[in-house]
Design a protein around this nucleic acid. Structure first.
Lengths: 466, 466
DNA sequence: CGATTTGTGTGTATACATTTG
DNA sequence: TCAAATGTATACACACAAATC
């Protein structure tokens, strides 16, 4: 028996040496599961380090590493390099954002809807398409990526966002999220790494987990993600892609400045990263601001997969987004679209196309602009907080103290009748500057007013004032 | 340099030692991919054994094993213990079946449509839904898994297929393929293995590759997949799931017998495999045959994810399938549905629900039955070949010689004006009994007659007669 | 049928990257 | 700021199981 440098007495978990069978790495986790179930170990307990436990059991430390890894895959453990391996807090509690399980009386500022009152303007188009002569063409398998006319409309619309692309590089998919899933499956492999803003779209984090990709969060300053930090992380480890929402980051509402876009593009070009550019909020900038900033697709067309979501822009029920892809990876992406979706609903696509080609689009846009502006004004009336760099964001945030957990704060507001999301949902790591996010566009202005009042009345004890 | 017991001259593949970088196992596969793309290695070539290649490269043989394993995950290699490692049938060339790139004048017996003439019966329902009072409810984010009424209809319809399940275990997804993608992401991890019939749904193979899962093909006899072989493969290596089309295998048209279902279920239960049961052709058996055989979902409800596709049954343009899931993995599956789709088109779902609740469903079914029966009769008039165990299959096969490649045969028929698929599309390994598959339901009977005549006139030189 | 060939599963050695204090 | 602690990635050794000849 080797002389131990570790004090066996201090082990937080002591598996039974006698019960250890081969394969060791499975047998170990089996014991661990039993001990968790029996309550002998509680959530968030730090397990012995790989080397400590290996020493105790007289095996190689990488075997313990293997066992822990197996536990991570099963969702019962998580690790932090430098600090150790821990028992998961909520193996089956996912952070996904969906409308499920929210009582009807709760004012939902969590899930981001888009002023759903405008949906009524879609109905006449829906009826027109259902009565049209070509409706039968919408009911078969043909043109899985969209019909020539639909794609031409897409191309024309995209040009207004400074995207110039041949039709063959556009595909219609079932929403931005669906497009991201298709892209992740097509061009990344398990274990690949993707850089994101430190706070980013919660469902992107979830999708990355689903596809076994690692998120590398990068800090930002007032102009957006910091290029120097991106370059540093790229040097540290192989990074394969970057996910960005340049028009209006979710949840921070930040818009990346023009100069910063070029600075980031230089790094991205040099490091050969694939850019996933989620421009779902393009309309918040491109129609509401005098100047359209160049999207990454325009700066790095060979490396960028661009997603133009129509759900927030026009109607959340018509599940359509335009996906613009570089020619080099067109085969993989088309292949992935076909394998994950077979095809996107032609009916939804056609209705959307009709709306875009009609004055209804401008009408909806004008209404949404007015409401977005007024909603921000309303928020400013309640809370004296600086606006983010996008002047008319869909999200506003209120800083909260680190002393309260996500669960505590969210549950408390839910009990008071408002659903808000804590910033922990938008990041993979613990952060020093937590906040709650309020989605301004999820209700009408009357309900927004009521909900903000509830928040104002109850926020005092949580407020963080730096 | 060690003395080699292998003759270096006999290596079927000689990677460049100088270009070999670390990590070796990746670098090796990178070279292999290049060599395949450059045509220096052809499909189904046997690669050097792990030990041979390791000896040649002066590395440990398990490192070569690691590299080969990585290639298997990518879908470009397959191995057989005792006989060696081979380049896949479809390495780096996508076998996905889509309508793309088929000239209009070509009679398409490749892609499986479903007597699209019936789609006209859907139109009135589509118009009715678009004019209904609740149409606005179809345009928002709510109820991502389907509305209570839609789910109730699904539950009722499923009961006719011998599926009894609470509503909470049903989800609406955008077609079977979409449901499979969601399921693979939810419950398997890269490297997991899934058993399938030796010939199986081409797009399932593709999806498995996309998610880095390994296909383990199992042979069948007249009653379906052989349980003894399944048990044997499970003993050989860890298998995590099984994909089955019990009503009507694509492409063989085989229906698994009742007894065989129970025999397979015994193994599956014992080995704790997840069953992915694609019952898209349920209507071919459940309505056309006097007796409904029990689906695996009924035999093993705790282990089965059941997919009931509505696209072949009713209309290929309404992208809806019912997914039935075991309670134990409901959280993961709901999570995956939400992350990959956000939600399925409510409009499509509602139209479909209306159709199922109306006499139109029975009308379409009757017509499809008549056409399927007549199409099979027509095929029998042209070719004297035994029918598979499903008496009214959507597919019929003609055995061809091994001396002609997939490309040769498919291209030749394409030039003659007919698209058919070679059996190589439906398998990952080289097989001794190739055939071409003819999808009977892809056209109307007149076109079918014309197409079968073309095949008959040109098949002679390819025919395999055992 | 049994020796040989071939791939697989498990544990280990080593170099290294990240975080902590 | 840097050493120590901690986990990770890669290659390897060895026992073994299945298929081939």
């Amino acid at each position: 028996m080797p002389i131990s440098q570790y004090d066996e007495g201090s082990l937080t978990w002591r598996p039974n040496k006698e019960q250890l069978k081969r394969p060791i790495y499975r047998s170990l986790i089996k014991q661990l599961e039993k001990d968790i179930l029996a309550g002998r170990i509680s959530k968030n307990t730090r397990l012995p380090s790989q080397r400590e436990l290996a020493d105790f059991l007289d095996i190689n430390f990488t075997t313990v590493g293997q066992a822990y890894h197996y536990g991570i895959e099963k969702g019962i453990l998580y690790t932090n390099i430098g600090s150790g391996t821990y028992v998961s807090q909520n193996a089956l509690h996912h952070i996904t954002i969906s409308t499920n399980n929210v009582a009807d009386y709760v004012i939902d500022f969590g899930l981001v809807s888009s002023f759903e009152a405008c949906n009524q303007y879609i109905v006449p188009h829906l009826q027109a398409v259902s009565r049209s002569k070509y409706v039968l063409n919408l009911l078969n398998y043909r043109e899985p990526l969209g019909s020539p006319e639909q794609l031409k409309t897409a191309q024309h619309w995209l040009r207004q966002q400074r995207i110039t692309t041949p039709i063959k590089n556009i595909a219609l998919v079932a929403g931005v999220q669906n497009g991201i899933a298709i892209t992740l499956a097509a061009i990344f492999a398990p274990g690949d790494r993707i850089a994101t803003d430190r706070y980013t779209y919660a469902n992107f984090i979830e999708l990355a987990n689903l596809f076994h990709l690692e998120i590398v969060p990068i800090d930002a300053d007032e102009e957006g993600m910091r290029p120097d930090l991106l370059a540093m992380e790229c040097k540290k480890k192989k990074i394969n892609g970057i996910f960005l929402m340049p028009s209006c980051n979710n949840p921070t509402g930040q818009q990346i400045s023009e100069q910063r876009r070029y600075e980031l593009a230089a790094i991205i070009r040099h490091e050969k990263l694939w850019v996933l550019e989620d421009d779902i909020h393009a309309f918040l900038t491109n129609y509401f601001q005098p100047e359209i900033l160049p999207p990454f697709q325009a700066i790095l067309p060979e490396q960028t997969i661009y997603f133009a979501g129509m759900t927030k822009f026009l109607c959340s029920g018509l599940r359509i987004a335009y996906l613009v892809m570089p020619e080099a990876i067109r085969p993989q992406l088309e292949h992935s679209v076909f394998n994950i979706n077979v095809k996107t609903s032609s009916f939804d696509a056609e209705v959307l196309t009709q709306v875009i080609n009609s004055p209804t689009a401008a009408k909806i846009l004008t209404e949404k602009f007015t409401m977005t502006r007024d909603a921000n004004k309303l928020f400013d009336d309640f809370f004296q907080l600086p606006r983010p760099s996008n002047p008319y964001p869909y999200y506003r945030n209120i800083p909260v103290r680190t002393t309260f957990s996500q669960q505590q704060i969210e549950q408390d507001f839910l009990n008071k009748g408002v659903r808000v999301f804590h910033s922990a949902r938008f990041t993979t790591q613990q952060q020093a500057d937590p906040f709650i996010r309020i989605a301004l566009s999820s209700t009408n202005l009357g309900v927004l007013d009521k909900g903000l009042q509830i928040i104002k009345d109850n926020i005092a004890c949580y407020l963080r004032e730096d």
